[in-house]
Simulated scan of single mutants.
Amino acid sequence: MKKCPECGNPSYDGAPVCGNCGYKFPKPKVGAKKRERSIFDSEPIFEQRPKVEVPKVEVPKVEKKQKVKKPSNEPSVIDIIKEKKLIIGIILLITLIVICGIVLTSSNKTGTPIQSSDLAQYNAGDFSFKYPKNWEKANLNDTEHETAIFFKNGNNTIIEHYNISSSATSLKDINQQRISNAISTGDAVELVETVTLDGRNCSNIILENSDGNYTRYVSMFTEGKLYVFKVTGDSLNSITSDSINSVINSADIA
């Protein structure tokens, strides 16, 4: 409530004039009402200050230094593997060459040639060979090959020769049968190879017998006929000597 300044009559606060004397109350000053904010208002409570743009400062890029590998005298793992493979390959190649050389030497070795005046010739129809005159003819028998002939040299090595008709279809079949028979009797196969005699492929088989001796078969097969040199001795050297190889290499089929 407010009182009229003229008559003192009380009036309500919002009355424009006094109800008793008609005095006009001065209009009240309207102050800025404080606004109540809610946490849900989207507008900011505080007055937003203008944004101040901060100038961008360009930072110079620092180039990364590439790591320079120091030269090392130590070989890498890959280099070592490559080097070892090369060495192994060379060793295998040398080994193969040596083996081939031994085989070729053993199959084609003729040694010191025997003078023709010291040789005698054996003829058996279409087959012949030359042998040293100092070889003795041995009186031996081969129950499986009745026409076989025998010689004995100075080392007591027995050289047998026979030729027979055969129903075999190839020299391979003959060799397989011979090897099977040898194994069944306890002999060990030391060597099986193909050699050339008189322009024909022949086989050269060496067996170690169960009694410790050695047997060598050199076989030629053509047109259903089998020609064989069978050499028996107490060592490998005795059955592969130069004189024996010379006799075998002199074989000739007419």
Rank of each mutant, 00 (worst) to 15 (best):
N134Y: 00
Y131S: 01
C100S: 14
Q121R: 02
K137C: 00
I99T: 13
K130F: 08
I97A: 13
L92S: 15
A120D: 00
I94E: 04
G101Y: 03
L140W: 02
T112F: 03
L140R: 05
G125L: 05
I114E: 03
K133V: 05
K84Q: 11
T95K: 00
S107G: 12
T143D: 14
E146H: 12
T112R: 13
I99R: 05
F150Q: 04
I80C: 10
F150M: 04
T143M: 09
G89E: 11
F150D: 02
D126L: 11
S116P: 04
Y131V: 02
S106D: 14
I87G: 09
I87T: 14
V98C: 09
A148V: 12
K85M: 15
G101D: 08
K137G: 08
I90D: 02
D142T: 04
N139R: 05
N108A: 12
T110W: 00
I81D: 04
E83Q: 01
N123T: 01
L92N: 11
E136S: 14
F127R: 08
G111V: 07
E146T: 00
D118A: 14
G101V: 10
I97C: 07
N141E: 12
N134G: 03
G89C: 06
D126V: 13
I97E: 04
G125P: 08
I91T: 15
S117I: 03
P113W: 06
K137D: 04
F151M: 10
A120N: 03
K84S: 03
E83Y: 05
E144Q: 08
G101Q: 06
T95D: 02
K85A: 13
K130E: 01
H145E: 01
W135H: 00
P132C: 08
F150S: 07
Y122N: 04
Q121T: 12
E146Q: 13
I80N: 14
L104N: 15
K137R: 12
A120R: 04
C100G: 12
I80D: 12
G125V: 05
I87Y: 11
T110F: 10
E83D: 11
I149R: 10
V98I: 15
I99H: 07
S107H: 06
D126R: 11
E83H: 03
A120L: 08
I149K: 04
I87K: 13
N123P: 02
I80G: 05
I102H: 00
S117N: 12
L96D: 05
I87P: 07
L92H: 04
V98K: 09
